[in-house]
Amino acid sequence: MRNTVNYFLISPALLISILIVFIPGLLTVIVAFTDWNGVSTTPNFVGIQNFNELFVDGIFWKALLNNAKWTLMFVTVPIVIGLLTAMMLLKRKKSKSAYQLIFLFPYILAPTTNAILWLNIIFNPVSGVIGYLKEIGIPIESPLSSVNTALYAVASVDIWHYWGFLTVIYLAALRQTPAEQIEAAYLEGCNGWQIFRYVYFPSIRPTFNIMFVMIIIFSFLTFDYVYLLTGGGPSHSTEMLSTYAYTFAFSAFQVGKAAAIALFMSFFGLLASCLYIWMSRNDLKN
């Protein structure tokens, strides 16, 4: 009887996992080896043709490189800003909550809202800040229009919306650091950096590690801000694996190729998960 109840309790989660994770995942793997166009009922098995075509496709490699650059930016800039801000907020007694609320605000807004805000109020060459600067004679162009700067401009918007969230997470973890360790460090004559390096950071390391890995995973899945701000342009300079897969699936009717790209994205997510497991094991050993 007890077992039946147990099965009953796990069945919703199990069913959901099977229906919306396992079966679609398996279908994606199968579709990657076909020429399915998304509507046909008779897709043909094409072996590794989709992968071969991707390997000789310069845009695919560009998207992969952009994802790598994106990951590099996200594992550095927002983490540094988030940690610094969290450390500064740690000392503030009364205003801490207000600051957290303000920093978290862009994160709780819908990506569409943020994108419209930046496109129309900041980057707009007619009515936005860029337009105003041009109007008063400053020779400036929207960074979204150059193939050299568009990726960094889009990443900046995404980082702007994301770093506040990291701040809140890091602050919550920092507050768990035992007060006696901090006091002892002060008594031993540690400076600010040493207290962070040898007391706070080891204390928040599990949180830091999981956020680090999550950032890597999300970086290879990133889609919303790129799609909303540039659609992968100009000239694929902001193309990501996700936006490229979307184009194949919904514009070119090449769902097989889109599935092949999705497998690459999953592969990098898997690598990041392995990294997390390795870091967790090392933590346990130490």
Partner: peptide
Amino acid sequence: PPATQQIFLDIESIWNEQ
């Protein structure tokens, strides 16, 4: 056809010397 059309949309790659 759809996939060929997608390549034509890349005309901006010529404009940006890509």
